[in-house]
Amino acid sequence: MPDCTDPASLEGLAWLACYLTTGKHMAFYGAFGTVLLLLAVTAPAALAFGFGGASLARSRIAPLAWIGKGYIAIVRGVPDIAFFLFFVIALDQAFEWARHQIRCGHWDQPIWQGNDFVVCPQAKLPLSTADQWIHEVYGFALAVLTFAIVFGAFAANVLYGAMRAVPRAQIETGHAYGMTEAQVFRRIVVPQMWVYALPGLSNLWMVLIKATPLLFLLGVEDIVYWARELGGTKTPQFTSYPHGDWRMWYFLGLLVFYLAFTRVSEVVLARVTARLTRGQATLAGEAQRKRAAA
């Protein structure tokens, strides 16, 4: 490991080794973990929102169906960037407003003062006395929730279609055996819908992977933020490692990361599809059965 105290005296690989191990680069490498963690948490959360939305949308009780369909229609219709810029602020304010009602009985000032949204100090989320990491975790949680709501609406639409694609005859057979509506849903619709939903869901997954740069709008520093920050021109006054506009190299690195990641996803999704197809009343399921029999 070269001595990095005076980078100006270093050359070639030694310089590069020092450059690539600055605290700033460490934050960049850490951001890959942030992105992967976000995807790992968001994907199931979005699926849960999607499942809920789709179940509501196909409900026989009209108000429930309106809620489900309204959720799908509104969130799908609002541009992502508007959603991520303003919805998160509104969400945060909603939480703080609720806490304010519970905790701040003694507070005599209005919450809205002109443009300003001010709750009592005890209602702040997180409290302004909280450690920095708590603020970061809270920001991350808001990001997950927002992503889950947005992608959940798209997933809901996919699952709604998939539930309707389950052959009618299967459902009627279930009824004929005396199953209740809930039993039919649980035992017949849900196990069979995934194979119809998977192409749509895999599209969503791919889009979600590439949507993470929106994180910085939510105050979470992701890999694209760091690539832009690290690659930008650095003049000698403000850094020991001055360089020109290197953004291209950093984005090239990101390109490789995203391509590798989407490739791995494709392989995994292909396997999941093959597994879900087994025994299904679809063309692919039939082909699988014939291959196995031959």
């Binding site: 600055t22 605290g23 700033k24 403000f238 850094t239």
Partner: peptide
């Protein structure tokens, strides 16, 4: 304002 080498 900027982010220095140490990331601060």
């Amino acid at each position: 304002n900027f982010i220095n080498d140490a990331g601060d």
